[in-house]
Write a protein that binds this DNA or RNA. Structure first.
Lengths: 168, 168
DNA sequence: CGATAGTTTCAAATAGTATTGAAAGATATG
DNA sequence: CATATCTTTCAATACTATTTGAAACTATCG
């Protein structure tokens, strides 16, 4: 037996929220994102507040944060005073933006630190072991960095994705 | 100018802790891991407590958690009553274990849910849009899942890594 | 301009997580 | 088996992050 739309949406919002918080993204932000993702129409702050049962301040702050991350756009409706919000619907774009942001904010500083730590002084066993560890970690993180960079920048892949969407 | 060993170790432990907590791993656990990573010798609970200035309970709980994750091994020294702990030093293995665990615990359930949500009832625009979104997300997460699976299981890569370590 | 509709801010409250430390539980030792 | 040494547990506490809601702010309209 298949599911009701309402129920399915709720399940998705809850799951997305839980998933996000396991990865260091706060629950409300992930839920707001989920809600917008599955709304065919842009929503107002009021809509978000009601549907997720969160406060105005919370809704506002997380909407702004999502805009910062380029995951959500403000849209204006003619004849409407208030702002509406809509999520970027292309999941490939979403993944790209999140990856880029986190890479820049978190991975790159770590790579930089490790590169620095490889240059520690000392000739004792401890120093050597430490440098080896720093080197290994640096290699690994650099490789991860490179993979993300590649998959983020790959124009070929981007083109294929765009094409497959158009041809769907 | 290069750095003192002591200073470098501290920097690394602090950074690893901060990095971990951005990714949903608690600071102490990441710090304990960092400390063991850069210790040439296995450490006792007492050592960990002292060096990180944390309580016995905290040290014990995080050591156990790290053992759970297969990132740390208990080792026994002959003639010593207490247990010592040592981190898996091969960073490739570490990355593999973490990836596998998180994939299993977090990504797979999400893929499963999305597969289910694709089967929502209804013929309205909303239902269709929702199914489309679930489908897109399912495609993406499945692809991520596949990539992780590949890089986790790749015996070729494993062999190359092992070989390069031996030949270093 | 004054009223109205909407947005943003932020201090305080709440909820969630991590840490401590003392006590209980194990295990080895003489 | 009594003692010493080490490990584990867990209720209390401290700490951090999130959320609220009311007030301040801004823009629009007649």
């Amino acid at each position: 037996m298949t599911m009701e739309l309402r129920e399915a949406k709720d399940k998705f919002i809850q799951a997305w929220g839980a998933f996000g918080s396991q990865w260091g993204i706060n629950r409300s932000m992930a839920q707001v994102h989920a809600l917008l993702l599955i709304s065919p129409e842009p929503l107002s702050t009021e809509d978000v507040m009601e549907q997720l049962d969160i406060s105005r301040g919370n809704a506002n702050m997380n909407l702004r944060a999502l805009i910062d991350w380029h995951l959500v756009d403000r849209v204006l409706k003619t004849g409407e005073r208030r702002e509406f919000f809509q999520a970027e619907k292309d999941v490939w774009k979403i993944a790209t933006h999140i990856t880029r942001e986190r890479k820049k904010r978190e991975l790159e500083p770590m790579v930089k630190l490790l590169a620095e730590l490889k240059r520690t002084e000392g000739t004792g066993t401890d120093s050597k072991a430490f440098r080896q560890m720093a080197t290994d970690l640096h290699d690994l993180t650099s490789r991860i960095d490179a993979v993300l960079e590649r998959s983020t920048r790959s124009d070929v892949q981007w083109f294929l994705k765009a094409a497959s969407t158009l041809l769907r």
